[in-house]
Design a protein around this nucleic acid. Sequence first.
DNA 1: AAGACTATATGTATAAAGAATATAGTACTG
DNA 2: CAGTACTATATTCTTTATACATATAGTCTT
Lengths: 122, 122
Amino acid sequence: MKDNRTFFCNGKPHHMERFLEVCLLLLLYDEIGYGYGLIEQLASFGFSEAGLNMSTLYRTLRKMENEGLVTSQWEEGGQGPKRRVYEITKDGKNELDQWIGILKIRKSRIEVLINQYDEKTT
Amino acid sequence: MKDNRTFFCNGKPHHMERFLEVCLLLLLYDEIGYGYGLIEQLASFGFSEAGLNMSTLYRTLRKMENEGLVTSQWEEGGQGPKRRVYEITKDGKNELDQWIGILKIRKSRIEVLINQYDEKTT
DNA sequence: AAGACTATATGTATAAAGAATATAGTACTG
DNA sequence: CAGTACTATATTCTTTATACATATAGTCTT
């Protein structure tokens, strides 16, 4: 009998709101990048190559462009299919700085919860 | 000139997926509780009394009941308006245990990102 | 009697993300 | 050179979590 998911929290998507977006801003912080190529770099942030959703990745990049956080252009000559290459903007860097603050708060809220859990269960 | 939100990440909802649900499971872990009364207890997890959304709170509790994580009943005699009192189930406790593991992963992913940010910006 | 507070609930809207699918060019391989 | 695998981007549809607004009603205080 296969895993029949007793726990609702096993029901797949354990994403953290906008986390992908922040990772992308950080990866683009000091060098340009393109969608497909960013996949392997995202692995260090816990995005499995299997699990990462391409549609989400591309859509997020285009959304960030609409918001003025990055700019893009088609890569000039180069082998293989053309790549849309993204570059971070000043606004994008500011946005990242703000997000870091928010992530520190998120982290501490998680810590508080884990600590209270440990207190109750030991 | 008012704050005109230069940063998209200031655009309000900095929720973490399902975090409220996990907090509720923990609060109900060793004692029963009801919606309105849980508000002040949620403050310790970073939910401001102003910011916390009652519709989300009540809806989340009912959803948890549908999923079998909690049970509820109207409180017998007692002053004030009637309260729907929630009690955690065995499934609910198992679910919380699972969530704690997920939150530890989330926390470490955030740490990785913050560390990489610090490396790049110092 | 008026107003503040306690308490729960629902209808509608929005935003983030997943699943599935479409489209093509390039590289390798026999 | 035909077939296959890989690189690369994009769109449509759907689901999920949450916010916003509003409704309802009992209780307490003055």
